[in-house]
Structure formats: structure tokens, C-alpha cells
């Protein structure tokens, strides 16, 4: 099933709630500039492992771990942009 851009963003919001247990209201209020890594206590390097695999499953993409650098989880916007680029 192809994903339109808006549904990628929706999926990322759902992932942050489902995988990290962040409150839905907090996630709903996120904008592109909202910082993630270092700002969300739920997001540590171990949680990132589950988040990446769940992103692959829900967006039907493959993520090469070499593609991942510190900037990916810098902000909500950078994570969504990465996912959109992968979905194509």
C-alpha cells in the first residue's frame, strides 16, 4: 500500500506514542522544530532500535543502519523527512 506524505507523518506520530509511550497530546503538539533526541527522555539509543524496526514494518521500507546519523533524531521534522525520503 503506497503512503502519501501526510500518512507518513501520521505514522511517525503513532510510532512515538506506541513505541516510546510518549503521551498522545505531547506527540500531537510536535512540529518540525520540536527536538527529539536529548529532549525526550523516552528516546534513548536502545529505544531507537525498536523504533527503526517498527518504522520499517509500518512504512514497508528498509533502513540501512549506515544511513543513520545523529541528525536523524534531532527533531520531529528531520525524522519525518527521513521517512518520507525512504518511502519515496
Amino acid at each position: 500500500m503506497p503512503f502519501v506524505p501526510d500518512s507518513v507523518e501520521t505514522t511517525i506520530r503513532e510510532l512515538l506514542v506506541d513505541v516510546l509511550g510518549v503521551a498522545p497530546a505531547t506527540v500531537a503538539a510536535m512540529t518540525d522544530d520540536t527536538p527529539l533526541f536529548g529532549a525526550l527522555p523516552e528516546l534513548d539509543s536502545m529505544a531507537v532500535a525498536g523504533l527503526l524496526t517498527e518504522m520499517e514494518d509500518r512504512l514497508d521500507i528498509m533502513i540501512d543502519d549506515d544511513d543513520i546519523d545523529g541528525e536523524l533524531f534531532e527533531s520531529f521534522g528531520s525524522l519525518v523527512a527521513f521517512a518520507k525520503a525512504k518511502v519515496g
Binding site: M46, V48, A49, G50
Partner: peptide
Amino acid sequence: LKTMIRTRIAG
């Protein structure tokens, strides 16, 4: 398996 491998690599 992938999640466990990623966890190991991150650690």
C-alpha cells in the same frame, strides 16, 4: 532479530 541486532550494535 533486527531489533535485537540494532540493540547490540547501539550498546
